[in-house]
Amino acid sequence: MTATALIAEDEPLLAQALKAELAQLWPELQIVATVGDGRKAVSEALRLLPDVLFFDIRMPGLDGLGAADEVADAWPVDQAPMPQLVFVTAYDEYAMRAFDAQAIDYVLKPVQPDRLRKTVQRLQQALASRAPAAEAAPDAAVLDQTLAQWRQLLAAAGGGAVVGAAPLTPTPAPLKLIAASDAVGTTVRMVPIDEVLYFEAADKYIRVLTADKEYLIRTPLKQLLTQLDAQVFWQVHRAIVVRATAIDAVHRDEAGKLHLDLRGRPGNESIPVSRLYAHLFRAM
């Protein structure tokens, strides 16, 4: 069976090495593209629709996590099955600890041939079982399974929380108050967590939105996630965390994308849900 793969790695020698190792372990695998930054990784993945993606985590432009997120969202599931995702990284404080046990979707640099062999075996199995399954049930089950795997992988690599996944680090007590600056930036407001409807990451800030106000904090989203009660706040997008009980309605647009209306927020403000988190909103 020939399979295709894309390698996204910004260090040329390492990309070349991974390619060479793969050629040894999996001669039938065809590397359709090797790219050096996250933006190109997304555009090439969507253009070539390979079976396997090897993504470096630290890349210029857009990091591996962001690139994976964008690929997941824009992947044309009716044209090709969702690809298998493998992260490649030199050192990652989150994943190394949390993920070492079953981390075959996670390859450490320098690439250890034994480890890579296991990864290759798993990929081959996954691709083989996908082929007949895809005939029988074209989308639902296989897609769900792949999406769940991507979610786990992104959560492990990014240190974020996934509903139902065991926390990676002992969680501190959930925040009760958020010390945020107002729009002008001259005053620090103590915002009770009960008033917050959603958080949205924007560049270097996180916007904290209540029913009628907006504040800014500087904590990275993945750090904030560890301090929120995962039952109360749901991540629905790489950059957005919403209060679950504030969700009023979920709409599906013509392109099949989900959007949320929140109680207490203006009706024209619609919050995107990425494909990776769409399973939260399936009708019961």
Binding site: E11, L14, Y91
Partner: peptide
């Protein structure tokens, strides 16, 4: 910085062979 160190070692490993 561990990231720098491990990446350097990874490159070194490639160069040893090539």
């Amino acid at each position: 910085e561990p990231h720098m160190l491990f990446n350097t070692l990874a490159n070194l490993r490639v160069l040893i062979a090539t």
